[in-house]
Amino acid sequence: MRELLAKLTGTYGPSGNEEEISKVIEDEIRDYVDEIKTDVMGNLIAFKKGNGQGKRVMLSAHMDQIGLMVTHIDDNGFLRFSNVGGISVLNTINSKVIFKNGTIGNVSYESEIDNIKDIKLNRMYIDIGAKSSEEASNKVSIGDVAVYYSPLSDSNGRYIGGAMDDRAGCALLIQTIKELEDCKNDVYFVFSVQEEVGLRGAKTSAYSINPDVGIAVDVTSTGDTPKARTMAVKLGAGPAIKVKDGSVICHPKVKGLMIDRAEELGIPYQLEVLEWGGTDAGAIHLTREGVPSGAVSVPCRYIHSANEMVDGADLENGVKLLVAILEQEIEL
């Protein structure tokens, strides 16, 4: 799991530019699934056939990550940018970023600004060390997107790195594909695009799959850091079964089924009430005539920074929970 996570988090793939990460995932899972395809939006959809008695289940983990899109190259070779997804000023000041071609830069802000509250993204820039507009233009074009550069580190059984949101979820799906053997249900594993800019890939893939049940696999916040906002989720206390977030109120029966499976098998779990944010389940459950949906979340600290932290045991238990949910009959 560690290697897989290192490989996934180290691969480039901001929203709208998921080609490379999609290729990496496809190589990982090709031998374990019955069908695999990429749709018009770029979603990677893998199908694992059941024994014909179960339901059509769609699992979705998004493979895109947030990024910084170049909008202007100035005369001295500094790059102005705007955000792709939820880039926060605070988390980005003096972060190292990397482009698709390997060009690395540092993000800083106009130094005349005195008050940190006055810093907006349009007063920040990326410095790739270029000495002129020409030199910068040789490396980077307008429209290119950089992502946080943050190779995976280990600390006390926990992993720190970029793009855990949602490569941790991708890792869970990949591992589940590999471990899932005897399955009653027809399962569609979707590695979705453009979640960070509005759950867009999940919306179109859910429409095309038209599943009976939807399950999103994503990261969620925790309330276990100093003076954190109240939230009952802790790092290392097991995968979180989502009750609600800003995009979905999980179907009580899907939520109940997840809890039942976890309790039957003694898999540690926690219940997640997220007061903001959203995930692919938000798009899936409103598809066509409605798809009862839920979500399994990986607890994660410092989401949308270069240094997101997840717990190794949560990942292992997350896979166990997903396998348990999929193997059994799903009654709603």
Binding site: V40, M41, N43, M69, T71, I142, R200, T204, S205, Y207
Partner: peptide, 23 residues
Amino acid sequence: QIKKGTTGGNDAGKIHISREGVA
């Protein structure tokens, strides 16, 4: 020219996610 700003939106926002997705 390539549009530099990334704010705002237009009809493409609804068209590209219609049904199974549209280029």
